[in-house]
Design a protein around this nucleic acid. Structure first.
Length: 335
DNA sequence: AAGTTGGTCAACCGCCCTGGG
DNA sequence: ACCCAGGGCGGTTGACCAACT
């Protein structure tokens, strides 16, 4: 069943022939596409000598020269294949990284993602994602839909209580060049969750991301975003920014409490920017800020700090120390 | 050599949105 | 307010090809 725009015509389907391509290119490069639904007929006419007797013969014999294609088909063929500004060939590593980064934020909004890749189409990006990137992420132990570690999701699903705890598995991160992004799953409206790690980070003072190890001597490079407000908080793109946390008070590392409040045992948060951000256009705000954590509404029960996210992605990258004013309880981050 | 399987990607389908009548 | 056509987009299909059995 064809689209209603061409339901009255006998239209051809399937792969385009070089002759059809030629007609479409000739028409659009000289006249533009205008209304796509009229392109097939016009493209056929312009393929003959203009204002000639042939033109009228052609019009009378549509099966010979009209582009017997649905307008939608013409549009798709032009946009996805014939357009002169299309980039050909394999995706570069940087393009791949961009796709992953933007997909993490936008999900399967291929057209939006493609806008960050000049010369690439949504169809191309979608195909590349489905045939390549998806598998790569799975091989790294990451859920391609959520970009979370698969073990996190599995653990969450298996935990019965209304307070759920996961362990940040680092077994998938042995290759430091493929450090995963660690994101917390969005909080469901009707459930409370508590997230914590059971790994102790012991080398946070070392600024080399590849040598930040957990107790199992496996690298754990983390980046934490609040998905509930992902537009504002994202993004500390992996391989560009490294968040390393540790604490003597809270050897478990970090955690998130119900209602997106964040409990940090960190005595320090280190953000290291490794290269210029590539995604400035995705977010509004100062471009030099690729993200950091800014917290408010803390509480301290003698062993743990409890913070709320105020907003993230607002602090410049750098190294921050958390200071608590013992008199008024105010929290301050020093760089 | 023939059949099967799996990957890639161009193209289609169906839904949604928008603007005009 | 409603209908309709056109355009945009994400999901899916299927043709094609290469590798494998």
């Amino acid at each position: 069943m064809g689209h209603h725009c061409c339901s009255k015509q006998k239209v051809k389907r399937g792969l385009w022939s070089p002759e059809e391509d030629e007609k479409l290119i000739r028409h659009i490069t000289t006249h533009g596409h205008g209304c796509w639904s009229s392109v097939p007929k016009l493209a056929g006419m312009y393929s003959t000598s203009f204002f000639s007797f042939d033109m009228f013969i052609t019009a009378l014999l549509p099966s010979c020269s009209w582009l017997q294609r649905c307008g939608k088909s013409c549009r798709l063929r032009w946009i996805n294949y014939l357009r002169p500004d299309l980039k050909r060939g394999s995706f570069t590593e940087q393009e791949e990284r961009t796709i992953i980064d933007v997909h993490r934020i936008l999900g399967n909004r291929w057209a939006q993602i493609a806008k960050h890749l000049p010369g690439r189409t949504d169809n191309e990006v979608k195909n590349f994602w489905n045939s390549c990137i998806k598998k790569k992420l799975l091989a790294q132990g990451l859920d391609p839909n959520t970009h979370n570690l698969l073990s996190v999701a599995a653990h969450l699903n298996n935990t019965p209580h209304n307070t759920e705890v996961f362990s940040l598995s680092t077994s998938q991160c042995k290759d430091a060049s493929k450090t995963p992004l660690i994101t917390f799953p969005a909080l469901p409206a009707n459930r409370q969750r508590s997230y914590s790690t059971n790994s102790t980070l012991s080398a946070f003072e070392n600024q080399n991301p590849s040598s930040v190890m957990d107790q199992n001597s496996q690298s754990l490079i983390g980046l934490i975003t609040s998905q509930s407000s992902i537009e504002e908080t994202t993004l500390l793109p992996r391989e560009r920014t490294t968040l390393v946390s540790t604490s003597s008070m809270n050897p478990s590392g970090f955690g998130m409490l119900e209602d997106s409040s964040c409990m940090w045992g960190n005595s320090s948060v280190q953000l290291q920017q490794q290269e210029q951000p590539r995604l400035e256009k995705v977010f509004e705000g100062p471009t030099e800020l690729t993200g950091a954590l800014n917290m408010d509404k803390y509480s301290f029960d003698g062993s743990n700090f409890d913070f709320d996210f105020l907003d993230a992605a607002l602090l410049p990258c750098g190294v921050y120390n958390c200071n608590v004013n013992s008199m008024n309880g105010q929290l301050a981050w020093d760089s």
